[in-house]
Design a protein around this nucleic acid. Sequence first.
DNA 1: TTGTACGCGTTATCAA
DNA 2: TTGATAACGCGTACAA
Lengths: 343, 343
Amino acid sequence: MANNKKTTIHDIAQKLNVTASTVSRALNENPRISENTRKAVLKAAKELNYEPNQIASALRSGRTQLIGMLVPNINRAFFSSIIRGVEEVANSLDYRVIVSQSSEIFENEESAVKAFLNVRVDGIIASIGKNTENFDHYKQVLDRGLPLVLFDRTTADLQTSQVVIDDYQGGYLATSHLIAQGCTRIAHFTMERKIDIYKERYRGYTNALLDHNIKPDENLLFSGNLQLEDGREHTLALLQKNQEFDAIFSASDYAAMGAMQVLKEKGLKIPDDVALVGFLNEPFTSFTDPPLTSVNQFPIEMGHTAANLFFDALHAGKKKVVPKKTVLQPELIVRASSLKEKH
Amino acid sequence: MANNKKTTIHDIAQKLNVTASTVSRALNENPRISENTRKAVLKAAKELNYEPNQIASALRSGRTQLIGMLVPNINRAFFSSIIRGVEEVANSLDYRVIVSQSSEIFENEESAVKAFLNVRVDGIIASIGKNTENFDHYKQVLDRGLPLVLFDRTTADLQTSQVVIDDYQGGYLATSHLIAQGCTRIAHFTMERKIDIYKERYRGYTNALLDHNIKPDENLLFSGNLQLEDGREHTLALLQKNQEFDAIFSASDYAAMGAMQVLKEKGLKIPDDVALVGFLNEPFTSFTDPPLTSVNQFPIEMGHTAANLFFDALHAGKKKVVPKKTVLQPELIVRASSLKEKH
DNA sequence: TTGTACGCGTTATCAA
DNA sequence: TTGATAACGCGTACAA
């Protein structure tokens, strides 16, 4: 069946007694072509089962229709959903997405960007690694005039478009909700990093307290890696220090999960004794017992936005547009872990 | 800083007063070159900040170092872990992975494969969509002599390498474990599809019963889409029909989760009244209450294996090797949902 | 061991 | 509107 030799525009040209350039024009919606030859070319192309060679096209035109996408971890629901969002937009415009993951390792991040540049991607969409403090590899991308869009984990050191969610608002929403449920002694689990997102969530938490005339208490603040184990430790510490508390707002669902485990082990009722709110809206949050209230970051929409910003920059081309920063509003998904009976 | 013009092998050649072909050979570990010039070229390349243009190389050599990877859903833990596994191997060999998702829609699957061929990937690693019954697009890949590796969702209609887990063994392990816990009335949730995997799990279930002299009972068998809602319905049906049962083996964690919810709502104790085993080992299984026993499919290892099979086929080149089928052994992860007190 | 010459398939720039 | 020609950057027979 399948021809061993792939047909090229020359084959089509030969068949129609025209030149390859005419065929190329016909295939690329070039206006400098008559409607008749255009139709003839399209017909012949179909007959000969022509498939364009994008590599040759890329070499000549300098455009590969490839987007390099860099994420810390592909098998985290948040990131894979963002990839999905980017893909949806990209594929609809006939672009392909190349994915690499840094695994939060700086060297991987550097080499992935370099690899992207070597395959001559048309641009890069990336989320910065936790421990990255040097951005030269990203600057190289910008120096080459390629679009670079950052999402979620961004930095002010790079003058480029970015999309984040309003982490402050997320922290504020979560905390206000707990206060509305009657909680006044609200602990917070956070992480100390250069990354802004945790600071913002913490700021939202603090301001929500202040706005409701509750004085933030340092004894209720815990910093760690926000993994399940950290949540367990923080909660045990809370209990051991005999701190009075009636709620926990964790900047990550995993640490919230650790808290839930410990609270249940100690016989405390959720949410009546301690109300619980996480952050990320990981898939598992609806499967815990009780289901965990959390902050949804709309990852698919974030992917859509990142892709749109990318194509904006791409189409702007040389004439450097002002980088745009899009801030998405998060949503508090209220579940049983924080919803007290009407009081 | 960054040169606007990217340096090519010609620039290096000029600087060293040699020809581009010499530079090319030096850069490609071609043996037909003296050690001296090789070193000189490498030095000059570094000085001029040379980065190879993989597009030009691909056009000339016919190899893009790109692997097209097709999955039903990128944001399912099982699949994103497999992607991760493939990436690890591929990147270490300087290959990049292009990911597309079919979303279980046949047309997407077709167009993704076509897009892969257009960018001239060196081969494809894919998992077949649920509803796919026509494999012509995959046959085209094979006709072109490109490596094609199928994972998890495979078909006997295609003569190509594949990697699956031993679903039969998974079903057998799960069921035997429940029997060892003293269960004799074990319900099974399955799905009716052309895909083999569910049939195999069911076969494992049946044979485990028979091997322990338990007669399979059709009244304990439920077929659906294996989503949470299906699990709920099946369990309610079990209870309403007043069927005697002391365990449920669900071919999916989601349906098992639905069962867990209903059982708890009805005041039944897990595992004492009803023991519960799922399949997939989704991340959430360790966060449920009680944690859910499940069958681990080692997705990352599956990705490694798929990549290795891919490179086997790639290196075999034209001399069509016999397609290999690798069967990975699953592992039962025993958690509290099925672990009864010693009896 | 190195150079010469050409081609991979397409697109861009002329000129007609 | 179409054709002729060159070029994108690299790899590889073949010759030297």
